[in-house]
């Protein structure tokens, strides 16, 4: 589904990702953990096409197609979704208008009929309810004046509506209390299916108690230095990231 090979990314003058490899197959949940500054967010931004993230080498394909060639909007239409660590506030554009425009654009790209206003509203209300966001939030400006937790839940709400094939959650757990964490995790878990994959980027093991990953990868200095099953997350929780310093890269990675 998503194949990342030897990805190298520069932001301004600094190379952040230095040869990252990751294979994500349909239905899999991959957790990417690592210390601050290891390149976790860079991965999400690069995959979603944020301007300023220069790919210096490597490749990324989605269902065999070159992802990096696509504009940000076309990546979304190909089924990629990034839940932002810092969702952007857009005053004056209502959440509802935003969501409808996004959904219409994606449906159009997929040659589907646009959703009727009535069906849309019904689905949007249900999605809000699922993440415990009052339906009034649909009328407010996109993320405008939302609390940190509300912004994160709004991201998951969008994910529920857009039904992407591959979801990248960029530190969606940061700044959430335990209740909100559960709401977010339940939202994600409800979407797990044999066709849909997740990349859960997080600093803490806590989220992985609720979203159980199939694979855990440790990102350090722009490379994945260790991969394992969910027990690796617990190991990291106990030992911290300091031991990574002396860890050689696993075989097969540069």
């Amino acid at each position: 589904m998503l194949s990342i090979k030897n990805l190298q990314v520069r932001v301004e003058d600094k190379t952040i990702l230095k040869g990252l490899n990751l294979e994500v197959k349909p239905g899999e949940v991959h957790a990417i953990m690592g210390p601050n500054g290891s390149g976790k967010s860079t991965l999400g931004y690069t995959l979603s096409g944020r301007p300023g993230y220069e790919v210096e080498g490597g490749s990324v394909t989605i269902d065999g197609a070159d992802l990096l060639e696509l504009e940000a909007e076309d990546r979304a239409r190909a089924g990629l979704f990034l839940a932002f660590q810092y969702p952007v506030e857009i005053p004056g554009v209502s959440n509802m208008e935003f969501l409808k425009a996004a959904l219409d654009a994606q449906h159009k790209a997929q040659d589907k009929e646009p959703m009727s206003s009535r069906d849309f509203l019904q689905a949007a209300r249900a999605a809000c309810k699922q993440v415990n966001l009052p339906a009034e939030f649909l009328k407010r400006g996109v993320n405008e004046g939302f609390s940190g937790g509300e912004k994160k839940r709004n991201e998951i709400m969008q994910m529920l509506m857009l039904q992407p094939k591959i979801c990248i959650l960029d530190e969606t757990d940061s700044g959430l209390d335990i209740d909100a964490l559960q709401v977010v995790a339940n939202g994600v878990n409800s979407q797990r299916s044999p066709e849909r994959s997740f990349i859960v980027v997080t600093h803490y093991q806590r989220l992985l108690d609720y979203i159980k990953p199939d694979f855990v990868h440790v990102l350090s200095d722009g490379k994945i230095v260790k991969s394992g099953d969910s027990s690796l997350a617990l190991e990291l929780e106990q030992q911290g990231y300091a031991w990574l310093q002396d860890q050689p890269a696993p075989a097969g990675e540069e």
Binding site: R50, P51, E73, A76, R77, P87, F98, A101, A102
Partner: peptide
């Protein structure tokens, strides 16, 4: 904001 909208499939 532009990138955020585009990242949801809305063209430029």
């Amino acid at each position: 904001a532009m990138y955020y909208l585009q990242s949801r499939g809305i063209e430029r």
